[in-house]
Design a protein around this nucleic acid. Structure first.
Ligand code: MN
Ligand code: MN
Ligand code: MN
Ligand code: MN
Lengths: 236, 236
DNA sequence: GCATAGATTTAGGAAGACCGAAACCTCTGG
DNA sequence: CCAGAGGTTTCGGTCTTCCTAAATCTATGC
């Protein structure tokens, strides 16, 4: 009989998981502390507890990694979070910049029954409002092959398939600029001396160009069909 | 700047309110403890805190009463709870015996925004699935004039307008017997020597008689249009 | 009128989650 | 190669909520 995890534990495990979702370095104590908004000392303590419970692997001064069991828990939490965000947008008229904080609370209060009935009602969506994939009830996720905009060379184009929901302010800004999920994006060029990336958004008559600072470039994931024709040369 | 109440405090205040919702004796420490499932000593301590925060009036060894501010908080929580129950039944296909525990958790996790958008979506319902009135956002409630079935003399009839949701088992039983909200109920007679009440449920061809033990009789609230014609004599 | 059963509060403690400051490693740059 | 700088853990404490056991009050029944 194992006591179900506290909501703190759920958040720790979820943050540890998320850190490696779009890159593969494991998270360190202080990164965990920063993301959770707690002191480093609190993390040390909690990590010991997580380890005792078999949810993470950790050796003093090392990084923190989820065990298979920890990952299972993380994936249920991620599923909850993303389904809730989807619900808030689709059913309650929230905008995509409002949902994260609400879901952050709700994820700890809903039962498994609730989650599955909600999934049913929503028609088993596969992505949340920010393009993040929703794990299946048994903990499978498929991450669509997308790359951070920042890592793309001029000439590439593709569909925006994910936008990091870390910063609601940025989400509002992007929405105003019509940069939303599934928009076609074209990397035009990079202005010199570390200047911003220039992109073209949309196609046809609604297309417009746009300067993208690095903060934004690293928050937009693009699914490139294939390297754009005209750029194969530059690739060499 | 006052820190928003913890979920414990929310539950205490809600239980104190609910105790006087359908009768008027204020709640005592041990009744509070019983309903919250905590030790008496925990209640003593918490009541002191509630008093410090101006949410209740209390003198040692006396009953616990909400202040106007405490009642405001209680009504917010009751509104949340009942709207959530309604949502679970109407939108997620829960049955009326399943909703209480889920709402008990969710009520502490939702934001005011969530609650109002939910109310909007549900069309501003006035009753929850058990017939309990839903307070308005500014804390108004109207309790329909209903009486516990147990307090009705034979000959009376009316509509079931409320069924206590304390016991899920009883709710399932009642549903199986077609005793649901807005059913016509007729008090036929009381079997002698403190025996059960006999009622007739429904009208016309679907009507059937039914023995009601006291536990159930005190959980059903009936809205009697007026004393039934044939019983005015017995009333004298 | 008053003893005492029963309700209530107080005392002393535990567990969980957090904190700042101090002690302690690790690892890198000179 | 080894000394710090900087990241990490340990230490001593706080706050919240809950507990059991002991002390204390209240109110009822004689
Ligand atoms: Mn999110
Ligand atoms: Mn959370
Ligand atoms: Mn509750
Ligand atoms: Mn109810």
């Amino acid at each position: 009989m194992k006591s179900q995890p506290s909501s703190s534990i759920e958040d720790y495990v979820k943050v540890i998981y998320s850190f490696t979702e779009w890159q593969d370095k494991p998270i360190t104590s202080s990164q965990l502390a920063a993301r959770l908004g707690v002191a480093n000392s609190s993390v040390s303590e909690m990590v010991r507890k997580l380890k005792d419970q078999g949810l993470v692997d950790h050796r003093p001064y090392g990084a923190v990694r989820l065990t298979p069991e920890g990952e299972r828990l993380a994936l249920t939490m991620v599923r909850r979070h993303r389904l809730l965000e989807t619900f808030l947008v689709q059913e309650l008229g929230y905008s995509w910049d409002e949902v994260h904080d609400e879901a952050e609370q709700l994820e700890h209060a809903v039962s498994d029954t609730f989650v599955e009935r909600l999934a049913e009602k929503l028609g088993h969506p596969e992505r949340d409002p920010h393009g993040d994939p929703i794990p299946s009830p048994n903990g499978r996720v498929e991450h669509p092959p997308a790359l951070p905009l920042g890592s793309l060379d001029p000439g590439h184009e593709g569909l925006i398939t994910r936008i990091s929901d870390d910063d609601p302010e940025m989400l509002r800004y992007l929405a105003r600029e019509h940069i939303v999920l599934d928009t076609t994006i074209h990397v035009v060029r990079r202005k010199p001396f570390g200047g911003p990336l220039v992109i073209r958004i949309g196609a046809g008559s609604t297309a417009h160009e746009f300067d993208v600072p690095d903060t934004i470039a690293s928050s937009l994931w693009v699914h490139t069909e294939a390297p754009h024709e005209g750029c194969t040369l530059e690739q060499v």
